[in-house]
Design a protein around this nucleic acid. Sequence first.
RNA 1: GGGAGCAUAGCUCAGCUGGUUUAGAGCAUCUGCCUUACAAGCAGAGGGUCCGCGGUUCGAACCCGUGUGCUCCCACCA
Length: 889
Amino acid sequence: MELTKKFEHQQAEQKWYQHWLDKQYFHSTPDHREPYTIVIPPPNVTGVLHMGHCLNNTIQDILVRRARLQGKNACWVPGTDHASIATEAKVVGMLRERGIAKSSLSRDEFLGYAWEWKEKYGGIILQQLKKLGCSLDWDRTSFTMDPDYYQSVIKVFIDLYNKGLIYRGKRMVNWDPVGLTALSDEEVIFKEVDSKLYYVTYPFADGTPGGITVATTRPETILGDVAICVNPTDERYAAVGGKQVVVPIINRRIPVIADEYVDAEFGTGALKITPAHDKNDNMLGLKHQLKAIDTLDASGKFTTEELMDDQPTEQVLAYNGLDRFVLRKKIAEDIAALGQLVKVEDYKGQVGTSERTGAIIESKLSLQWFINMAQFMEKNPQVLGDVLNDTIRFYPEKLKNTYRHWLSNIKDWCISRQLWWGQRIPAWYDKEGNFVVAATAEEAEAAYLQQFGKKAETAGGLQQDEDVLDTWFSSWLWPMEVFKGISNPGNADAKYYYPGTTLVTGQDIIFFWVARMIMAGYEYEGKRPFKDVYFTGMVRDKQGRKMSKQLGNSPDLLGLIEQYGADAVRFGILIASPAGNDLLFDESTLEQGRNFNNKLWNAMKLVKMWEARQSDNAAQLADSQFAINWFANRLQQVKLEVDGLMNQFRLSEALKTIYSLIWDDFCSWYLEWVKPGFEQPISSEVYSQTVKFFDELLELLHPFMPFITEELYHLLAERSDDLCAHQWTAATATNEAVLQQGELLKQVISTLREARVKNQIKPKDSIDLHIQTAVQANYESIEAVLKKQVNANAIAYTQEAVPNTIVVAIESEKFFIVSERDIDTDALKAELLKDLAYQQGFLDTVMKKLGNERFVANAKPEVVAIEQKKKADAEARIKAIEESLQTLA
RNA sequence: GGGAGCAUAGCUCAGCUGGUUUAGAGCAUCUGCCUUACAAGCAGAGGGUCCGCGGUUCGAACCCGUGUGCUCCCACCA
């Protein structure tokens, strides 16, 4: 068969992925083996693959494939998240394009469209993961709105409600005026914005001249003001206590109250209180028993609904329906017209925005469902404890701090969302607002009868809550429910696969998801959900900017896979990804990956070209014996090293180590050492050893670059099995002496090659070599290789300098090169003098140390011994150089 | 405002318990080679105030203090 010049990835990728699927290698069922479980962080059902997924899933695939090779029962569960608010927003947008308003649809009609959308676009991302080579157990694909999953979410809600951990209450929530829903604190992103600080004067109600001036960033909320608050220790306001002031425009008389909450240093030291539109104002309002007057509707437009007691004027009524930001300017102007706007300052402030819609969040009083986190944490102290004591291990470890800080200051979790796409809250209300919590209408009626002593229909029937649950209220069950651990507790799968082994996810969802999975895990299984959590950093562009659609710096991943190959993309993204740090994506690392593919491909071609011959191979085998022995040891050494790195999740370094083993040790050294002469046969012994080494290298690399390794495994020899399902050969102990001799050989070859280049000896010109060494035995076994590598006709040993030769030295050993080329004595001399100066400088530093009595007295004896050896080596080297200089003189 | 982290070659990073030569790798750069698997390659080379300052120590890239510059997380002083 004719082999192509380069590795052609397209057909190999398609062929092998299909083959692996056909063989069911990715499918796992419980058995006697140790399980290795990873659940995918479920991407949004409507998502498409981006660089973050690529990094994240490449890492998971590496871990899973490695576990599989190690003989573990590896199970990687795929799936998607219904992503309530994000998906609903997309569906609403799609409907708008078709000219359909969400408000014109019934709940069921809307859900019909949403499911249609999900069937059409949902799971595209899972198909894209196949292109990347991800070895997921597709038979286990889960979706957070699958019927069983849906029911398990409802079940958990009811259970937590019955345990008293869920309550319903009217609280200040983060309101998204675009998404028209409440959000949890975690879904609010604070951003710095340029705004203005308006100084507004509220005149005294009793006609006393002057008034109180407050500084506010939000004049549009002034009509909802119910008090002015000052600090009780603020002498400027000592005289105004108990007075009333008049709210501009609406002319409401409000009291001046005192509270230590107010910072006298800020603005004027006087704070306007609007309990309906600010969290802190609300807290103060409750404390001082002030009314909350809401002046904004759900979409952030002005409404006079609650202002009727104030008998609003035409001017106020005209504000109706104005957007909050339009109103801000309008009110500022109107107050200025009254002469009550003292000044306006530029101000940099933080505003909360919605993670999903980007809208500026409005603090709003609203009736919502919450989880009482203080109580939950009291019940489940391991949620924090087991992370702090490394029962659940975080990589990088520094995130333990972040986790602890968040949990120690945890607020109640608002879990209701005013959306339709999601698990509908199983609460049922009668006309008076009494409610029961139950899974179905029938159960609700029964519960109602029991709780309120009357039939539901006598109270006008029951109505189910219109709202759905926060997406994360379903994803926190993911590690359990993908194995039906909630809907069918104690089943064989759940028992076998839970707790999972490793979770790989982004640092950005440590609170949203990781912390909550740990919570749910302890609450429902009494066990940690996973052993290790590996947090990846964020993928950024070359300049360190976040990838975003606006910047257009987000590469087309499928295009890159097409262009460079999946293995190259995996290589490129991983090699640039230091553990736990952000990754600066640069296409040049993909090129490096592609080049590596070709290196492997060509190494395979070389081996395939060789003709193994049984007879007449004794001499060649002897010549190659050292190379084989050395590489066998070197391979084991690297395997041990890689084991260590992988155990610490230092994947990038593990890959670098393997890369260098293959490119440098195997291709540049080993293959060159055993390579037969042109069109010469190779000893069958050497050949089979080489193929065996190659197999082990492919095995080591396979988790990182699955496609090319599988392809080469099959091209290298006839096989009845697949690399994907191979069983790892464990690393064995290494022989240090052989490894050291290998290093010596490399060093001698490099030094002699360098000398050849410097003396302009062409590669084709052969040399004679004389070696002056104390230990001739060190060289005898590597003589054959050395001859080949430095193009020497002959190697001889000598006890004294050989005149008229090029001399180089390694430690105290000297090498005399006899060549037909004239020797450039001056250049050689200059070279030696340079080396001599370096050695003398070095010796000086060593002597200084050894001359320091305190060093000799205090340092550990080993350290002193090392310094003494350095001294001896440097002296020997200097002597060798001096002798060489003499022969040149 | 509180907390965490980072600063080492042009770039991205190793450097784990303070002593493995006068600090390493990959990529990039430069020089010479179309040598028989590979020019997407081979053989070589150059490149450093380990952010500044002070301290501890026989000895500091590493430990302590301090300054500077970046990054991230948390926190709605209106």
